[in-house]
């Protein structure tokens, strides 16, 4: 058990009634960092987080949270005060007013941050009933309940889902503040590039198991490829030939064809071979640039298996 980690999962096994089994071993979440969890739908991201939070029946588990064995952590009220979780489903009673939720939060944790209150613009929702709120407004309540006590450990499940652009930006700023200033550890399931942009570490999950766990830089440079080239084939009759020739370009890490477009990931040095291919086939429509979070998400939901 290392003090370096806020969550340490040595072993985590669970299975479903249909026989599907998930195995998550050696997943450690670093203290004070923002860790993103990515992967295609149904890959086990939410299951993993819920299992860590004690919301799933586990076949085998050796898990520590903040240095405390998982079962003991959830038995102890004081331990749970350091945790804040925004779950995927908004499930509070619809007949409760926002002001009452805030009062409940105060009674639960005894402290509330004005910064979180203002960032999520709670003032404008205070007197509304939950059943009168939009999906995005409900998400703000959900986030407030998870963040307002400035917890040491935060788990988020697609936190900016349903939020408008302005509110999503405010949330990102708030999460950065929590991490940088409050030294809060954040574990965040995400499908959005702007959420992934602030992650220090990324875990990719595929088919109920961890495939990669690395810093964002390592993900970009070594796993995905720091550069991304695209060729728009259109109705070019040599499409198959062009795709075959991409294999011969040096320093390409991976490439794939989707629709009438070929995506190529690799090192900067692949540029020479790429441009030669463009020239040979006299292709008019192409791009070459640095990879980014959107590329990580694109690859993780398709090919990191």
């Amino acid at each position: 058990m290392s003090k370096q980690f806020i969550i340490q999962v040595d072993e985590l096994q669970l299975s479903f009634e249909d026989g599907t089994a998930f195995n998550f071993n050696d997943i450690n979440i670093t203290k004070g960092k923002i860790t993103g969890i990515i992967g295609p739908n149904g890959s086990g991201k939410t299951t993993f987080v819920e299992a860590v939070l004690g919301l799933r029946k586990l076949n085998k588990a050796r898990i520590w949270i903040d240095g405390i064995p998982q079962k003991e952590f959830f038995k102890d009220n004081a331990s749970r005060k350091v945790l804040g979780s925004q779950l995927q489903v908004f499930a509070f009673s619809e007949l409760v007013k926002v002001s009452e939720m805030i009062a409940l939060h105060k009674a639960l944790y005894g402290k509330q941050s004005n910064r979180v209150y203002e960032a999520l613009a709670m003032d404008e929702l205070l007197n509304k009933r939950l059943d009168k709120l939009s999906g995005g407004q409900k998400q703000r309540i959900n986030l407030y309940m998870a963040l307002a006590h400035m917890p040491k450990l935060v788990t988020l499940d697609e936190p900016s889902a349903a939020l408008d652009k302005n509110m999503a930006e405010r949330l990102i700023e708030l999460l950065q503040y929590l991490s940088d200033v409050q030294n809060c550890s954040i574990l965040m399931i995400t499908h959005h590039p702007y959420e992934l942009d602030i992650c220090h570490e990324i875990i990719s999950i595929y088919g109920g198991t961890k495939t990669y766990h690395a810093s964002r830089e390592v993900f970009l440079n070594d796993i995905i490829g720091a550069f991304h080239a695209q060729i728009f084939i259109g109705d070019n009759e040599n499409a198959t030939l062009i795709q075959a020739e991409v294999n011969n370009i040096k320093h390409v890490k991976q490439h794939f064809m989707q629709g009438n477009q070929i995506d190529i990931y690799g090192q900067k040095t692949m540029e020479v071979g790429f441009l030669a291919l463009i020239k040979k086939h006299q292709l008019k429509s192409y791009s070459f640039g640095q990879s980014n979070s959107a590329d990580i998400l694109k690859i993780s939901t398709s090919f990191i298996g």
């Binding site: 939070l53 749970r80 489903v89 499930a91 639960l108």
Partner: peptide, 17 residues
Amino acid sequence: EQRAKGAFKAYHLYPMQ
């Protein structure tokens, strides 16, 4: 109903007996 729609998951995570 509350349990079925997952409301109690949040209660499990709150510091509350």
